[in-house]
């Protein structure tokens, strides 16, 4: 499976900048409950919970409502909330818990901000990386700043 969005939880320090950036980008207000990305305490440190935009995506395979599809211009896995009934089949197959139920029962899922995600721009720790197919093992071994600059073509 290939991913568009890479999460390196080892580099996350729980600052929540990505969560606030997402909520502001989507709703104009910094409300973590409305954000399409979550940061939670994990056994060792922090974990970032967000859709990785898998290809092929198991959620698209199981959705009987055709509510999930790949956006052709960005490659993101996007949810059509008009078609979704919160049957939760997508949640049953997501390897990352990247789709969840918001307050009131509507399904929340990252749409990659049309290809330029606010969370990635907000993360100063290099824990979120947008890339077509980076080598995740390599990302982990290098220091975050070095690696981030290199991936973005600045070094």
């Amino acid at each position: 499976m290939k991913y568009l969005l890479h999460v390196i939880p080892e580099k996350c320090d729980g600052c929540m900048e990505c969560v606030y950036a997402c909520s502001i980008a989507k709703h104009g207000t910094p409300d973590p409950l409305k954000a399409l990305i979550r940061v939670e305490r994990a056994a060792s440190g922090w974990d970032i919970i967000v859709c990785r935009h898998c290809n092929p995506a198991p959620c698209i395979d199981v959705c009987e409502f055709n509510a999930l599809r790949v956006d052709e211009s960005t490659g993101a896995v996007v949810l059509n909330r008009e078609l979704c009934t919160t049957c939760k089949a997508c949640m049953s197959v997501c390897p990352f818990e990247g789709v969840w139920e918001g307050c009131g029962g509507a399904v929340l899922k990252c749409d990659l901000c049309g290809g330029d995600p606010a969370c990635v721009k907000a993360c100063r720790k290099g824990a979120l990386i947008l890339s077509k197919a980076p080598d995740k093992g390599r990302l982990l071994s290098k220091s975050s700043v070095d690696e981030l600059l290199r991936i973005k073509g600045l070094r």
């Binding site: 008009e82 078609l83 009934t85 919160t86 049957c87 918001g102 307050c103 009131g104 029962g105 509507a106």
Partner: peptide, 25 residues
Amino acid sequence: YSRHRLPEALKCGYLGGLELGVAKE
């Protein structure tokens, strides 16, 4: 509306998100 959303609607006390969008279409 979607029955799948009823427990969450009860928990939050918010009934505004239950309707199925397809209906209007």
